[in-house]
């Protein structure tokens, strides 16, 4: 019944350019949905950390896959991403992550 906590960490070349956003928050915790909070981690320029809390227990490999895919498409660096999930499907997770990437680039460009 308790929640599952998953951690994922990615290493890559440091992000170039200045980041304008202080933090980004997206979504809601509701059945089939999730919230994402992204915070900059300027002291670790090449690192991206994911902290997932989910009520759907036992789907670690699916999360790994979805987040791997996200990281392969988007150059997200030097930030920590917190996810509170209430049983979102992989499709919804992808959608929310895409929204996050969009917000990041939008905020970056001003």
């Amino acid at each position: 019944m308790a929640l599952e906590r998953l951690e994922f960490e990615y290493l890559g070349p440091a992000e170039k350019g200045k980041r304008d956003w202080e933090y980004i928050h997206i979504g809601h915790v509701m059945s089939g949905d999730l919230e994402i909070l992204a915070e900059p981690m300027p002291h670790e320029p090449g690192v991206t950390k994911f902290h997932v809390t989910t009520s759907a227990v036992g789907f670690g490999s699916v999360w790994q896959m979805v987040i791997d895919e996200f990281m392969a498409t988007h150059k997200v660096r030097a930030c920590e991403i917190w996810i509170n999930d209430d049983g979102a499907t992989p499709a919804v997770v992808k959608l929310r992550l895409a929204q996050l990437a969009k917000e990041m680039s939008r905020e970056k460009s001003g």
């Binding site: 019944m1 308790a2 929640l3 933090y23 928050h25 809601h28 915790v29 999730l34 919230e35 909070l37 915070e39 809390t53 989910t54 009520s55 917190w82 509170n84 999930d85 209430d86």
Partner: peptide, 19 residues
Amino acid sequence: PRLKLTSPHLPPMGQTPQF
């Protein structure tokens, strides 16, 4: 949300908290 002051009462019930 950045303060992440979530409810400590929900996780033991299997309910995901919100920031």
